[in-house]
Design a protein around this nucleic acid. Structure first.
Lengths: 135, 135
DNA sequence: ACATTTGTAACATAATTTATTACAGTATGC
DNA sequence: GCATACTGTAATAAATTATGTTACAAATGT
């Protein structure tokens, strides 16, 4: 998973919001992000799967929004690119006979779910339109 | 930076809370986390720098809490191991002549600062004592 | 003295992210 | 219908980051 996924996706969507009448090419978008066009297309594939954008193949093809930017919230974008906020887990399986090791991941999950809730509440109130208005 | 830093640090602190009278060795702690002892010592160095634990060198040495677990909040631990919540930035410098590229990172920063605020508020209300009580 | 432990540095390996290349498939306009 | 400019996707490579290991000096209890 691309770690800049959220940032890249929101960058793409902001561009599409700014040029609502054009099909933008992955090359053009990649130029603004300074990223390989293939990676842009991958994120667009994700956006398409969520019916947020539509794209046209062939000459003069490209991508445009499939929904009104007032109807897209940052929560959706967050969820499709990030899953959940989390402050990380230790890489290896902790020791199962230790009372702490046995339960640490479960307890961290509960904590992270709580944080996720708070972040989601916040992001739900920000639309793509709102975000794009700052440019 | 260790990406499991927060999880590892909170694991260490939970163990220290559970054994408040002992100096625990990095080897013992590493066993519970299933992590290399050197990495445990690195996180302990960070905790020491923040005066949350103290440690003793030499035989029978190890680490113990330097503060009461009711006086340590998850916010502090978060801050010393994570800095700020963030949903990522694209790796490369965006195109400076594009109105979106020019401002995207600034706008993302504002957004992330806001999320960070919400998360911090939540973590401020959870003490190490609270967290440890779930084990 | 000896055993055990911290503290660090240097280096090695593994995992993840990002970039590149390649090419089949599709629409457009001449 | 042919050249051109795109998307879509797979395979692979390079770069970056995270984790693990080894090594050893310094400290301390017995």
């Amino acid at each position: 998973m691309l770690s800049g996924k959220f940032a890249i996706t929101i960058h793409i969507l902001t561009l599409l919001t700014k040029f609502p009448n054009d099909f933008l090419s992955s090359e053009f978008i990649a130029g603004s992000i300074n990223l390989n066009p293939v990676l842009v297309r991958k994120e667009i594939a994700n956006l398409k799967a969520h019916h947020i954008v539509e794209s046209k193949e062939g000459k003069n093809g490209g991508t445009k929004l499939a929904k009104n930017p007032t109807d897209i919230t940052l929560k959706e974008i967050f969820q499709m690119t990030f899953d959940t906020i989390n402050l990380g887990y230790a890489k290896n399986q902790p020791h199962p006979d230790c009372p702490v090791g046995k339960k640490i991941n479960e307890n961290l999950s509960v904590l992270y779910a709580d944080l996720n809730e708070k972040v989601s509440l916040e992001l739900k109130n920000i639309t793509l339109e709102d975000f794009s208005n700052h440019f």
